[in-house]
């Protein structure tokens, strides 16, 4: 389990990185935190001709909470998890980050790497979808901003980023006043990729739900849960609405079978977890633990 041969560059600026991407195109792979890519290199499942290591691009690592929350693509998960700015703006993010792997993984793993790798069982793509985040992609030809939905579509282990584009920033709009969240996932072991998980952000007007955004992971791809959201908006918070949302989530969720569980089980799980997340969000008792 040793990587195949590749050429290696370690640019120190975004411009340098973009030049390298322009030069090597589809033969190149960007190395961010490496917590998913390096295993694939070791297994020789990824065999890039050229590796562009952006860990030395210091300008990609920052957290800025001025209006919207902006996070540089190379910001480490530990820093995000411990950031007061992030917790203040979107507490669902640190709740999700805490569930990603283990400390050693979070010390290297980055938000941009997680989004660009787009593992369907990863927490962040789904969470960012629920938060209506956008990413900035840059290339030598310029910059574009892509909504999470358009970045991921129904893809897994790839995104709509072009071969010469570098994901540089994640922007998350400010949360609606009074919004609350729930985050639930079910993994067979602490720190493992989840069999299913959901981030729910809701806003209520007293007892009526005015906004609901749910992002799910652990299926064939990260996804919003539109049926569940529709069941919530306009409904009174409580068991009836949450049960309807759970059922909606199960209908929306692209469940699949593998060694860890059947698709049927995962569909059931997303239902249970959605109800639990909504109970957490509503601050009601009986949320249980996942």
């Amino acid at each position: 389990m040793k990587p195949a041969v590749f050429d290696y560059s370690a640019p120190e600026s975004i411009a340098e990185a973009l030049d390298l991407l322009a030069e090597h195109g589809s033969g190149a792979k960007v190395l961010a935190g490496g917590q998913s890519l390096v295993p694939m290199l070791n297994f020789r499942l990824a065999r890039p001709a050229h590796l562009i290591d952006v860990n030395g691009v210091d300008s990609l690592s920052y957290i800025s909470a001025n209006g919207s929350l902006r996070i540089g693509a190379m910001t480490r998960l530990t820093a995000i998890g411990e950031s007061g700015d992030v917790a203040g703006a979107h507490p669902v993010i640190p709740a999700a980050v805490a569930q990603i792997g283990h400390r050693a993984i979070r010390n290297r793993g980055t938000i941009g790497g997680s989004v660009a790798h787009n593992d369907p069982a990863a927490e962040l793509p789904a969470v960012l979808m629920a938060l209506d985040a956008e990413v900035t992609a840059r290339s030598v030809d310029g910059e574009r901003v892509i909504g999470m939905q358009d970045l991921i579509e129904d893809r897994l282990f790839e995104t709509t980023l072009g071969d010469t584009e570098l994901l540089t920033e994640i922007r998350i709009p400010a949360a609606a006043a009074g919004s609350t969240f729930g985050f639930q996932e079910f993994a067979r072991r602490h720190g493992d990729f989840a069999l299913a998980g959901v981030a729910a952000v809701i806003t209520t007007d007293g007892s009526t739900i005015t906004q609901a955004a749910l992002g799910a992971f652990g299926g064939t791809h990260a996804t919003r849960l539109p049926t569940a959201e529709a069941a919530l908006v306009g409904a009174e918070t409580g068991d009836a609405a949450f049960a309807a949302a759970g059922a909606g989530a199960a209908a929306d969720f692209p469940a699949t079978s593998d060694v860890h569980g059947t698709a049927e089980y995962r569909s059931h799980l997303i239902n249970v977890l959605t109800v639990r997340a909504l109970n957490d969000a509503a601050g009601q008792a009986g949320g249980g633990n996942g």
Partner: peptide, 14 residues
């Protein structure tokens, strides 16, 4: 900070 040394390249530790 704790890291997994199998998930880094030696050149990254320069």
């Amino acid at each position: 900070e704790v890291v997994r040394s199998c998930l880094m390249l030696a050149v990254q530790a320069d």
